[in-house]
C-alpha cells in the first residue's frame, strides 16, 4: 500500500541570522488508517517537521512524497492545491476566522475548492459540525464559543474537503480533559474508521498514548519510534 506521507532524510536549516537546523535527516512514513504522534521536548523540531510534511515549508534537503507523488519539484501553486485537497490542518490555537460563523468557517475550504454547489457545501458543512457535536452551533461566531467548541469547529474545517491526511499541532494544548478525550476519540475514528492518516504533534501523554505509533524527536532528529 502506498504511504500517504513518506519523508526521506528530510532536513530544514535556517540560514538567517545564523545557520540553525530545525529538522535533521528525518525519515518517516504514514500509512492510511494510521494515527502517528510526534513527541519530544519544546523546540526539538516537531512543528517544523509537521509544516514540512504538510507542504507549508520546503525542506533544505531530502524528499517528501504525498500519495506517492514527489513534491520537491512542484511549484507553489501545485503544493497549495495539494494542501487544499489532500491535507487538513488543526492547530493548538483554533485559528477560526472571527468574522465568520462556525458554518462559514467550515465551508471556507470547500468554497475555495469549488467542486460542490452552494447548497451541497452548506449541507456538508452542517453535517461535519453535527459529526463533531456542534449541530446547534452552526450560526455561532468563534467569540461566542468555548475553547473546546472552537477546536471542534477547527477539526470540522480541516475535514471539509475530505482530506486523506490530517495534521495537527498540539490540538489539545488549550483543552480541558473532557475536550481532550473528545479530540482523541475523533482522531482515532478518523484514522481507524475513515482510513485517514493522522499525524499529531503533541506534548500530551494521553494523546501520544492513543496513537498507533510514536515518533520521538530531539534536537531536530528522530531519535526513536515504535
Amino acid at each position: 500500500m502506498t504511504p500517504l506521507i513518506e519523508a526521506n532524510r528530510v532536513s530544514r536549516t535556517l540560514a538567517d541570522p545564523e545557520p540553525f537546523t530545525l529538522v535533521c535527516d528525518a525519515s518517516l512514513s504514514v500509512a492510511p488508517g494510521e494515527m502517528v504522534a510526534i513527541v519530544g521536548p519544546s523546540g526539538c523540531g516537531k512543528s517544523s517537521l509537521l509544516y514540512l510534511l504538510g507542504l507549508l515549508d520546503r525542506p533544505t534537503s531530502g524528499s517528501i512524497s504525498i500519495d506517492g507523488r514527489v513534491t520537491e519539484d512542484l511549484g507553489e501553486a501545485e503544493r497549495t492545491h495539494i494542501r487544499l485537497e489532500r491535507i487538513g490542518y488543526v492547530f493548538q490555537f483554533h485559528f477560526l476566522l472571527p468574522e465568520l460563523t462556525a458554518l462559514a468557517n467550515v465551508a471556507l475550504p470547500m468554497r475555495r475548492l469549488a467542486r460542490l454547489t452552494g447548497d451541497q457545501i452548506a449541507e456538508r458543512a452542517a453535517a461535519l459540525l453535527e459529526k463533531v457535536g456542534l449541530g446547534d452551533g452552526a450560526g455561532k461566531r468563534p467569540e461566542r464559543m468555548s475553547g473546546g467548541e472552537r477546536q471542534r469547529v477547527a477539526i470540522a474545517r480541516a475535514l471539509a474537503n475530505d482530506p486523506a491526511i490530517l495534521l495537527s499541532d498540539e490540538p489539545t494544548g488549550n483543552l480541558d480533559s473532557a475536550n481532550t478525550r473528545m479530540v482523541i476519540a475523533e482522531f482515532q475514528r478518523l484514522a481507524h474508521e475513515e482510513g485517514r492518516g493522522v499525524v499529531c504533534v503533541t506534548h500530551d501523554a494521553t494523546v501520544a498514548a492513543a496513537a498507533d505509533r510514536r515518533i520521538h524527536m530531539l534536537d531536530g532528529r528522530i531519535v526513536a519510534g515504535d
Partner: peptide, 9 residues
C-alpha cells in the same frame, strides 16, 4: 497564515 495553510494561494 491559516488561509494559506488551508490551501488559499
Amino acid at each position: 497564515a491559516i488561509l494559506r495553510a488551508m490551501g488559499f494561494t
